[in-house]
Simulated scan of single mutants.
Amino acid sequence: MTIDLSNLRQMFREREYKLTPQRQIILQVFIDNRDKHLSAEDVHNIVRQQSNDIGLATVYRTLELLSELDILQKMDFGDGRSRYEMNETSTPHHHHHLICLYCGKVIEFEDDLLDDLENKISKNSNFTIVDHQVKFYGYCGECREKREE
């Protein structure tokens, strides 16, 4: 399901939260940047171009709330800051990520090759698995070429 502002207004109403102008601006950043994994600082830099009265603390609080409400998915790519993206899936397994160690680029991939492994682990350990995350670290094509020069 593709999420837009009307869907988000409805989600906020159903959960009895207000969709303040600041929250709406921050959500619009994610709608406009669906293919990116944004940190609070990234969001703040984008938001400042539209509205100087939204501080970094407001961005942090809003991102945490949106993550708690499952509107955003919070991720840690090992670079010391949380990243967020729009949570547009109703399936328990999300896409996975390739993370370039040189430039920090994050590339998504959808192939979920772990179903058999997950089923085996679940059966052997009597453990119900509800989700997993896969992150591969390496070098993107551009950075690999730079390193080989």
Rank of each mutant, 00 (worst) to 15 (best):
residue 2 T to W: 01
residue 4 D to W: 00
residue 8 L to Y: 03
residue 8 L to S: 05
residue 9 R to K: 10
residue 12 F to I: 04
residue 14 E to M: 09
residue 15 R to M: 08
residue 17 Y to F: 12
residue 18 K to M: 06
residue 18 K to P: 08
residue 20 T to W: 05
residue 20 T to K: 11
residue 23 R to S: 01
residue 24 Q to M: 05
residue 26 I to C: 00
residue 26 I to A: 00
residue 29 V to L: 04
residue 32 D to S: 13
residue 33 N to W: 03
residue 33 N to Q: 08
residue 33 N to A: 07
residue 35 D to I: 13
residue 36 K to H: 08
residue 36 K to P: 02
residue 37 H to Y: 13
residue 40 A to W: 00
residue 44 H to C: 09
residue 44 H to M: 10
residue 46 I to R: 11
residue 48 R to H: 12
residue 51 S to P: 04
residue 53 D to T: 15
residue 54 I to A: 07
residue 59 V to T: 05
residue 60 Y to C: 08
residue 61 R to I: 01
residue 61 R to T: 03
residue 61 R to H: 03
residue 61 R to W: 01
residue 65 L to W: 03
residue 66 L to E: 02
residue 66 L to P: 01
residue 68 E to H: 06
residue 68 E to Y: 06
residue 69 L to H: 03
residue 69 L to W: 00
residue 73 Q to N: 10
residue 74 K to V: 09
residue 75 M to V: 02
residue 76 D to C: 11
residue 79 D to V: 02
residue 80 G to D: 10
residue 82 S to E: 13
residue 84 Y to P: 10
residue 86 M to F: 04
residue 87 N to Q: 12
residue 88 E to F: 11
residue 91 T to M: 08
residue 96 H to P: 09
residue 97 H to T: 06
residue 97 H to Q: 09
residue 99 I to R: 08
residue 100 C to Y: 06
residue 102 Y to Q: 14
residue 104 G to R: 04
residue 106 V to L: 11
residue 106 V to R: 08
residue 106 V to Y: 05
residue 111 D to G: 11
residue 112 D to H: 04
residue 114 L to S: 10
residue 115 D to V: 15
residue 115 D to E: 15
residue 115 D to W: 06
residue 118 E to G: 04
residue 121 I to R: 01
residue 122 S to V: 09
residue 123 K to P: 07
residue 126 N to Y: 13
residue 128 T to D: 05
residue 129 I to G: 00
residue 129 I to E: 00
residue 130 V to N: 12
residue 132 H to I: 01
residue 135 K to N: 12
residue 136 F to W: 10
residue 136 F to M: 13
residue 137 Y to P: 04
residue 147 R to M: 15
residue 148 E to N: 15
residue 148 E to W: 14
residue 148 E to P: 14
